[in-house]
Write a protein that binds this DNA or RNA. Structure first.
Length: 470
RNA sequence: GCCGGCAUAGCCAAGUGGUAAGGCAAGGGAUUGCAAAUCCCUCACCCCCAGUUCGAAUCUGGGUGCCGGCUCCA
């Protein structure tokens, strides 16, 4: 099944072809670690993980890089030296480096809880100052950059492709600029590659001056090229990154190397909350702890995100999250039921399983239509619950659910490491049956509760008790 | 002001020319010692207006609303 993805650059869905057969190299814009990422941030990171898993499921060797921005970008692209990281550090009266460590740890803990497979590299901006300086030097050499005192700017007029990704025109940018014009720049749309400010806490002495720090686009270009090469396959980020960030990255990278930077640009739509934008003033900027307080696991959130298409709007409400939790529970339950029905049989052929497999793969191949992919899982669940499956068919369904569906979507709960053996369960069930026959319901219910806590789901039916592991 | 996207049931969300996937919630019924789970049944003409077409949720034009970019932001 051929993979097809929407490319922001071409504004169309195109077949995917890696630069090197069988190998995918991709870069994801990661967090700025000045405060714990919220659920909106994780929509983009979960998307990156989905992409990686989809490639791996198809046998690609994936090289994945996500940057950690640990140096402040300017609050405004002006001359005042304050940045978010520094501002937050000052607010908390701690060292910026300490803030970076704390938030990074929170970020990685969140990723793990969300079931995100670790990227191969998480480069930090501050550890790549030499690479950034080198990039700036190359841009000066190729005539794409100019120096004013200790500052260096990129000259957008020197790069004819500037605006191609975002659809902006340099002339319109000038007209719409709300910033105070920076008299140092030749054109208002020119952007800083290297800035200098003696008051900055995070600063480096370089050939451009004693108190410099990188402009806010160079890090991604420098680090992406270091780990992935001057040309690579995919670059992702939130829709807000399209302009100016990614537009500037293209200009910088291609201006320096003369090579195409990235083939495929993919962007996720912002998460909305209660039908509008998430904002601190509305008090709806939630993080994973806020979800946990209301009884939702990180995987519930992961599944909530995966039920929608990454390019479509997704509206977060507590009701919607509850719906996702319930749906996820049903699929976890399906795994247990299939395991019980398979009874150790070897996987065989079953039409409903084949159909689910085909529909699921086709949905993901079609620009990652996870919504339709999940629907295929429920079709399988409904068919199984309604008509049942022979052990071989159930085994095939289980194999598909775990090894294909969950391998790519990653929403199933980890299976219990230990639990009662089948014999123990059967013994307890026999004991419960005796108690029920004697109308000792207190004792019967106690056994039921005990089994439930051990992850055993009982089903009383007219034909007797059936059970499966959750 | 300039660019771009979206608008589907109570909630979340697929579908982009041939007559509305899936999930949650809800209601009715079956089953049950109670409960849970499960089974059967019910539940949308797709924001508004005007067009194109044999036929539109799907195309065009105009509204309205929300979101993004032009300014740190996934």
């Amino acid at each position: 099944m051929e993979l097809r993805f929407y490319n922001t650059l071409s504004r169309r869905i195109e077949p995917f072809e890696p630069l090197e057969p069988g190998r995918v190299r991709m870069y994801h814009c990661g967090p700025t670690v000045y405060q714990r990422p919220h659920i909106g941030n994780y929509r983009a990171f979960l998307f990156a993980d989905l992409l990686r898993r989809v490639f791996e499921a198809r046998g690609y060797e994936v090289l994945q890089v996500m940057n950690i921005t640990d140096v402040g970008h300017l609050v405004a692209d002006a001359d005042d030296g304050e940045d978010k990281l520094q501002a937050q550090a000052e607010k908390e009266r701690i060292d910026p480096w300490e803030l970076v460590e704390r938030v990074s740890a929170e970020f990685f803990a969140d990723l793990e809880a969300l079931g995100v497979r670790p990227a191969h590299h998480y480069p930090r901006a501050t550890q790549h100052i030499p690479e950034m300086v080198e990039l700036v030097r190359r841009l000066l050499a190729t005539g794409h950059a100019y120096r004013v005192g200790d500052n260096v700017y990129f000259d957008v007029h020197s790069f004819p492709g500037y605006g191609r990704l975002s659809g902006n025109r340099v002339e319109d940018l000038e007209a719409g600029a709300r910033l105070e014009p920076n008299p140092e720049k030749r054109h208002p749309a020119d952007f800083a590659l290297w800035k200098s400010d003696p008051h900055h806490l995070m600063k480096w002495e370089t050939e451009f001056g004693p108190h410099g720090f990188p402009g806010w686009h160079v890090e991604c270009s420098a680090m992406a090229m270091k780990y992935l090469g001057e040309s690579f396959d995919i670059h992702t980020g939130g829709e807000d990154n399209v302009f100016p960030h990614h537009e500037c990255e293209i200009a910088q990278s291609e201006g320096a190397t003369g090579q195409p930077f990235v083939r495929l640009w993919m962007h996720t739509k912002f998460l909305q909350v209660d039908g509008g934008k998430m904002s601190k003033s509305l008090g709806n900027v939630w993080n994973l702890d806020d979800l946990a307080e209301r009884g939702f696991s990180p995987l519930d959130y992961r599944f909530f995100v995966l039920r929608a298409h990454y390019r479509g709007s997704l509206n977060f409400t507590w009701d919607a999250l509850a719906g996702a939790r319930e749906a996820r529970r049903a699929l976890n339950d399906l795994r247990g039921r299939l395991a019980a029905a398979a009874a150790g049989a070897a996987p065989g052929r079953a039409p409903v399983v084949e159909r689910a497999r085909t529909d699921f793969a086709a949905a993901l191949a079609d620009d990652l239509n996870t919504s339709a992919a999940v629907a295929a899982l429920f079709e399988l669940r409904n068919a199984f619950l309604r008509d049942g499956l022979e052990p071989a068919g159930a085994a095939a369904a289980l194999d598909f659910l775990v090894e294909e569906a969950d391998a790519q979507l990653g929403f199933l709960d980890p299976t219990a490491a230990v639990g009662p053996s089948d014999e123990e369960v059967e013994a307890l069930l026999a004991e419960r049956a005796e108690a029920r026959a004697a109308r000792d319901f207190a004792r019967a219910d106690a056994i039921r509760d005990r089994l439930q806590r051990a992850g055993i789901v009982l089903e009383d039916s007219p034909d007797g008790v059936r059970w499966h592991r959750s």
